[in-house]
Design a protein around this nucleic acid. Structure first.
Lengths: 195, 195
DNA sequence: GCTCACCTTGGGCGTCTGCCCAACACTATA
DNA sequence: TATAGTGTTGGGCAGACGCCCAAGGTGAGC
C-alpha cells in the first residue's frame, strides 16, 4: 500500500507511544511509567520505545509537552480585547469544572510540574509554554485597564492551578463557589492599592 | 543504660526512618523512594523498614503527614481576630519567600497532593489537615467582615499553593510581585459582588 | 531480481525492587 | 541463670526495571 510507507507507519507508532505515555503518567505516576507498560498499551513490542525515543524520560517529556501545548493553545483564542470579563472568568471556570483535580488531565499537569523540578530540559519547555499563556492573559488584562496586569495574570493562572490542586482534597471547591472570589481579582482595577 | 530502653531506641529508629523518607521524597520523587535508600540514609539495616512499617507506601504516608502537620500547625497561631490583614498577608508572603517551588518543602507538598490521588487513606488525612487550616483562615476572614469568607479562604490557600507550583517555572513570581494582587482578595470586602 | 533503509520483534543483560525470614543482640523479668 | 520480648541484621527470593541488540520483515529505488 503506497498510502502507508514504512516511515509513515513508524510515525504512527511513535504517536501511539506518546498517547499511551500520556495516559499512563496520570494513572500510575511519572516514575512508575515503564517501557513495557507503554509498549503494551500502544500495542507494539517493548523494544520499540528505545527505537523512537532516546530514553523513557525523553518519551515522557515529549508526551507531556505535546498534550499541554494542545490544551493551552485552546485558551488564548477566547481572549480578545472586546471579550468581557464575565466571558473570561466563565471560561476559566468551565475549565475548572472539566478538571476535578483527580482526572487524567489535572494529574498530568501536576506530574509535569513536579517532573520539571528534576528535568532541566522539561522545565525550560514548560516555562516557555506558560509564558505564552500568561502573555495572552496579561495583554487582555492590560487592555481592560487592570492594575499590574502581568502580576494579576500570574496570580490568576496560579490560582486556577492551585484550585485544581486543592480540589481533590476539597470537593466543595466548586466553580460556582470560587467564581465571585476570582472575579474580585479582575474587577476592582481602579481601587487604591498599597505596594 | 536505663535511659535508653530497647523500646526507646526502636522509637528513635522509627523517627529516623520517617525523617529519611521525608528527605528522599522531594529528592527523587514518591515512586522512586526505595526501602534500601531510606534505610541507608537512616543508617540502619534494610530489613528494619518492614519491621516498623507495613509497607513502603505506609512509611511514605506517615512521613508526609507528620511533616505537613507540623508545618501547617505553625500558621493558625498568627491568626487572631485582632491580627491586621497586613500581618496575615505578610506572613503568607514570607512563606512564599521560603518556598521557591523547587525546595524540598514545596516538592514534598506537591508529591503528597499527587500521591493522595492514588491513596485513599492519604487523601483522607490530607483532607482533614487542610480543612483545619482553611477553618482558621475562614474564621479570621469572617471576623474581619470579608464577603464569602469560606470561599475566599479556599481560594487564598489554593492561590498560595498555585503560586508555589508555578514559581519553579516563573522566577519572576516573587512575593513582592504577588502581594498587591493577593491583598486585593482580602481587602475589598464591602464591594458589590455578582453571584 | 537485488540492495538498502527503515521499522519491528523478542530475548537477554545487569541491576534494582518490595517483602520475607532465620539468626542474633540486648534488656527486663522470673 | 534461664526465659521471654523487642529490636536488628544481612541475605535471599521472584519479579520488574532500563536499555541493548541480533535477527527478521517490508516496501522503495535501481
Amino acid at each position: 500500500m503506497s498510502a502507508s510507507t514504512s516511515a509513515e507507519r513508524g510515525a504512527e507508532v511513535r504517536r501511539r507511544l506518546l498517547v499511551a505515555a500520556a495516559e499512563l503518567i496520570p494513572e500510575v505516576g511519572w516514575h512508575a511509567v515503564s517501557t513495557r507498560a507503554v509498549a503494551e498499551r500502544a500495542g507494539v513490542g517493548a523494544g520499540l520505545v528505545h527505537y523512537h525515543f532516546r530514553s523513557v524520560q525523553s518519551l515522557l517529556r515529549h508526551a507531556v509537552v505535546e498534550v499541554m501545548t494542545q490544551l493551552l493553545a485552546e485558551f488564548p483564542r477566547v481572549l480578545s480585547t472586546d471579550t468581557s470579563e464575565d466571558v473570561v472568568v466563565r471560561e476559566m471556570l468551565a475549565a475548572l469544572d472539566d478538571y476535578s483535580g483527580t482526572d487524567a488531565t489535572s494529574l498530568l499537569f501536576m506530574e509535569a510540574y513536579l517532573a520539571s523540578a528534576r528535568d532541566e530540559q522539561l522545565r525550560a519547555e514548560l516555562s516557555h509554554l506558560l509564558d505564552d499563556f500568561r502573555s495572552a492573559l496579561t495583554a487582555w488584562l492590560a487592555a481592560r485597564g487592570t492594575r499590574a496586569p502581568a502580576e494579576t495574570a500570574a496570580v490568576l493562572a496560579a490560582a486556577v492551578d492551585g484550585v485544581m490542586l486543592h480540589r481533590a482534597l476539597h470537593p466543595g471547591l466548586t466553580a460556582t463557589a470560587v467564581a465571585p472570589v476570582l472575579r474580585r481579582l479582575v474587577s476592582h482595577s481602579t481601587e487604591r492599592e498599597q505596594g
